[in-house]
């Protein structure tokens, strides 16, 4: 089955990178609204970190041998 941490990780990494880029390229005047904080840069960093962590977890899970999981009645046998 698809590991949901991949799409979450990739999406936030991508969006974070885009925000950082926007933050780095835009002029300080455009941040009057956000109280003078370059919020795109800072929040982009947060998103990038979060996305990277998610992807890292997914990658580690992929390389770890599958552990047997107790399954309930009626659950699919071959995941």
């Amino acid at each position: 089955m698809l590991d949901i941490r991949w799409p979450i990780g990739l999406m936030f990494t991508l969006v974070g990178a885009l925000l950082i880029l926007t933050g780095a390229l835009s002029s300080p005047e455009s941040y009057q609204r956000s109280l003078g904080i370059n919020i795109n840069l800072w929040w982009g960093l947060v998103l990038l970190l979060f996305g990277g962590l998610m992807a890292l977890f997914a990658w580690r899970a992929k390389n770890r041998p599958e552990q047997p999981i107790a399954r309930g009645p009626g659950s699919r046998q071959n995941p």
Binding site: L19, S34, W43
Partner: peptide, 11 residues
Amino acid sequence: KRYCPSGLLGL
């Protein structure tokens, strides 16, 4: 609308 500059606004 008040706080988000372009970028954060999209988010």
